[in-house]
Amino acid sequence: MENLLEIKNLTVEYHTQGEIVHAVNGLSLNLRQGESLGLVGETGAGKTTTALSILQLVADPPGKIMGGEIFFDGVDLLKTKKSLLRSVRGNKISMIFQDPMTSLNPVYSVGFQIAEVIQLHENCSKEEARRKAEEMLEMVGIPKERYEEYPHQFSGGMKQRVVIAMSVACSPQIILADEPTTALDVTIQAQVLELMNDLKEKLHTSLLLITHDLGVVAQVCDRVAIMYSGEIVEQGTIPEVFDHPAHPYTIGLFGSIPTLSMESTKLTPIEGQMPDPTELPAGCNFSPRCPYARAECHSKKPGVTRIPGEATHELRCFALGWEQPDETLMEVIKRGR
C-alpha cells in the first residue's frame, strides 16, 4: 500500500514573549490509504499541533512551522498555494475537533453547516447540497427533519455526529479526528466510535485518531504512534506495540492503566513531569523520567531504530531497544493490560 500522507521531519514552534515553545520536534509519520492510525500521548505532547499543521491551521502568531515536509498526494502541503490548500481542507482532508459544543457555529442550522461544506467543494446547486446534507444527517443517525434546527437544540453526542457528518460530507481521503470523544460521556463515546468505524469501512477513508485513551486506539486503529514532547517515540501495528511495548514511556503508559481484575487504591503514574517545552533536555526527551536511562541518554538524542523481527515496529530509544525488558517490568505491563 502506498503512503497517502507522509510527514517528514515536521518542526513546529510557538513564539511567545521571549520564549520559544518546541511543540513538535522533527516528527515523521506515514498514513496509508484506508488505514487508521492512533496518535497517543499526554496533554502537551504536540498531538493537536501535528494535526493542525497538516491543514496549515496552526495559529500564526504565535505558531510557526519551522521545517519539514508534509506530502499528500505527492504535493507538499507546506509549500502549496493558499487556494489549493483551501480545496484540500474539508474536501480531501477533513478534521473533527475536540469539543463539539464549540465547533459548530451557533447562528446557523446544523443542516446549513453541512450543506456549506458540500457547496464549498462541489459544484452543485443549493437544493442539491441540501439533499446531500440531509442524506449525511441520516447517515450519522439523525432524522433529516432536524435539518433546520440549531446547535443549541442538540446534545453533545448529537453535535459530534453533526460534526462527523460535516467531516465526511465530501468523502475525504483522510479524516483527522482530534480527540473526538473526549468531551463525551462513555456510552456516547462508544456510539460515536462505532459510527466512525462504520463510516470508515463504508467510505474507505484513512483516519488519524488523536487521543490519550489507549482503549479507544485498540478499538478503532490498525497502527499506533506514541508521542512524547513533540516526537514519536514508538510506533507500530496494534499487536506489535500493545503486546511488546519497547519504549520505557509506552511501558509506563500501559502500567498506569488500572485493571478490573486487580484491586488497587492508587494508580501507578509515570514519575515526574513532561519536560518544559521551552527548555528541552540535551539528550533523550524522556531521559529525566526514564528509570532505564544511561549516561548517553542524557547527552545524546536517540535516533529511530526498527526492532528486528517485527515488520513495522519502530523505536526512538538507546536504553531498551530490542533487549528483553526485565521480568518485573513485564509483570507491570501484564498487570497493566
Binding site: 491551521l57 474539508g90 474536501n91 459548530l104 461544506v117 464549498l120
Partner: peptide, 17 residues
C-alpha cells in the same frame, strides 16, 4: 478564537467567507 472559526477554516472557507 472560537473553535467553530477554526472548523470553518478546516472545511476550506476563505477569509472573506
Amino acid at each position: 478564537n472560537e473553535e467553530f472559526i477554526e472548523a470553518a477554516q478546516a472545511i476550506g472557507a476563505n477569509d472573506r467567507r
